[in-house]
Design a protein around this nucleic acid. Structure first.
Length: 551
DNA sequence: TTAGGGTTAG
């Protein structure tokens, strides 16, 4: 435009600066700022507003404040942009000061100002202040809450990990006569992505259909992911097949869904289809492809994929790609290669890398390497009780003189909270919780009798007794593990019919004894068992598990 | 024509 000799005006400048804000192009934006001064449109309120947002997004808050202070004329955008800048930088106190100043100025806060303050407070951990503002905003009758007001609160709760409160607000929103929009759905779906919330997912899917929200690609994308994590891979695939326009996230989500369910061949074939359509896989696609080769224990192919990614596609591997490689070597039992790979990595290994190595070490009974990985994990997350517990166990198992000293030192550093296994299962619209060794339920005797009977059968099949590093203490110590109680509950309460599909969520890693029992039950009764615990998803069917006995 | 709320990578 400039080289054609057309003079830009304030609108041109504001639009161009906005583009720089999105792309966080500090130098280009500053050049346009200089141009605005040169052509004399710097006092244009539109330009000033765009600049405040631009400098905030480039993390140059002092510059934003300077622009704000110099503006001869301010409007509601000016104030909102400046307040939003402080909020996004985490300065809710400073934002609140401006919010108060704004209320005493000739420009009054609008619904966006209020929403910005609400999301700012809650994301900075001040839940009370956020809900207080949410209630106050309609007090004087000038401001009406909108869908985004509800979304701010719901998304805020999710950011701080309060899923239940978010879902509760979601319900309240609907009973207050507000319809969820695409943003609401995209916030709330990941909160329901687990094996015991399938009904909730279906309910939200129902809202999507009734409100015609499936047109935006992001909605079916999120549903594909959520259904897979809720154990309904067939629903994910049905949605995928029906989608007329797919984007990268669609493909990545479906490929990752197959990997999650241990369907490596389907994942690889879908990745091939993606290539044939001329779509270039991105880093995240390669994570899934490497993991699929890992499931097949095809180390050479996995290594080839990483090379292809770097050399042919000119992509810099992300830490997740390196972690997937460790899984590839680890699952195949090539532990020395795994550790050599980690040592040669161009980036610093993070906890995902070390925890993959720890998994490999525990599955292949390699105590020394397990201790090495555990110590690294502990160095990265010293406050993590679970890791501390694993490291202590590993030292105790190895039991050299130095190990004993290390155990004592670790124990003295922190008081170890007791790790209690807990499992959840849904039945008749109610989620039931079981803790390991719990005999307090009125029907406990029925559960234990059922477990005793199955245990005898499983013991006859044989047990492998290796060096065991486990999240949870052995059952001889804590009593029957919670997932067995949940399994027994599923059978006992569906009598005389055999349950077809059982879904359980657990807080701690499953032990190999419980894993063996679940496989046996799936074979004996012809039922499917889905069980997830942090970082792992199991689908037991016909005596096999989708994890390939590696978790 | 500038401001707020959101999807994948077990």
């Amino acid at each position: 435009m400039i080289s054609s000799g057309v003079e830009p005006n304030g609108v041109t400048i504001a639009t161009a600066i906005s583009a720089c804000s999105v792309l966080k192009l500090l130098n280009n934006g500053m050049a346009i700022h200089a141009l605005a001064v040169e052509i004399g449109c710097i006092d244009d309120v539109l330009v000033g507003n765009a600049l405040i947002d631009f400098y905030s997004k480039c993390e140059k808050l002092e510059a934003s404040q300077l622009v704000f202070d110099c503006m001869p004329e301010k409007d509601v955008f000016t104030w909102n942009s400046m307040i939003g800048g402080y909020i996004q930088a985490g300065y809710s106190g400073k934002a609140n000061e401006l919010f108060t100043r704004m209320q005493n100025s000739e420009i009054q806060p609008d619904v966006i100002t209020w929403n910005t303050m609400i999301s700012g407070y809650i994301e900075n951990g001040d839940e009370d202040e956020a809900t207080d503002l949410f209630h106050k905003m309609e007090k004087d009758g000038k401001i009406k809450r909108d869908t985004a007001s509800w979304n701010s609160l719901i998304a805020g709760y999710l950011h701080i990990g309060q899923k239940q409160k978010a879902l509760c607000m979601f319900r309240q929103m609907q009973s207050s006569g507000f319809s969820p929009n695409a943003v609401t759905i995209l916030s709330v779906l990941p909160a329901c992505a687990n094996l015991v919330a399938l009904k909730k997912v279906k309910e939200i899917h129902g809202i999507v259909l009734r409100r015609n929200l499936e047109a935006a690609v992001s909605i079916p994308n999120s549903l594909i992911d959520t259904y897979a994590k809720s154990g309904k891979l067939v629903y994910s695939k049905a949605l995928f097949d029906r989608m007329k326009s797919k984007d990268f996230i669609t493909w990545n989500s479906m490929i990752a869904a197959y990997v999650l369910h241990g369907c490596s061949d389907e994942a690889l074939s879908l990745a091939d289809q993606m290539l044939m359509l001329g779509l270039k896989p991105e880093q995240s696609t390669f994570v899934s492809i490497i993991l699929a080769h890992s499931l097949n224990e095809n180390v050479e192919e996995g290594k080839h994929i990483l090379t292809t990614m770097i050399e042919d596609d000119q992509l810099t591997p992300a830490i997740e790609n390196y972690a997937a490689m460790v899984d590839l070597y680890g699952r195949a039992g090539r532990l020395e290669e795994a550790i050599r790979f980690i040592e040669a990595m161009p980036v610093k290994p993070d906890s995902s890398v070390w925890s993959r190595l720890l998994t490999a070490s525990r599955v292949h009974d390699c105590l020394d390497l397990g201790i090495h990985a555990g110590e690294r994990l502990l160095g990265l997350e010293p406050g993590n009780a679970l890791i501390r517990h694993l490291v202590l166990q590993a030292y105790a198992l190895r039991g050299t003189r130095e190990d004993t000293f290390r155990v004592q030192r670790l124990q003295n550093e922190h008081q170890l909270p007791k790790l209690i296994g807990e499992s959840w299962i849904e039945s008749k619209n109610k989620v039931h919780s079981f803790v390991s060794g719990d005999r307090s339920k009125p029907y406990s005797n029925l559960l234990f009798a059922w477990i005793d009977q199955i245990s005898i059968e499983v013991k006859q099949i044989g047990r492998r007794q290796g060096l065991c590093i486990a999240d949870e203490e052995k059952e001889e110590v804590v009593g029957v593990h919670s997932e067995k109680l949940a399994l027994a509950f599923a059978f006992v309460c569906s009598q005389p019919v055999v349950p077809r599909s059982i879904r359980i969520v657990k807080n701690l890693r499953m032990c190999s004894d419980c894993h063996r029992m679940a496989k046996h039950i799936s074979l004996k009764y012809g039922c499917e068992i889905y069980l997830s615990h942090p970082k792992c998803f199991h689908h037991f069917k016909d005596g096999h598990c989708s994890c390939g006995d590696y978790w």
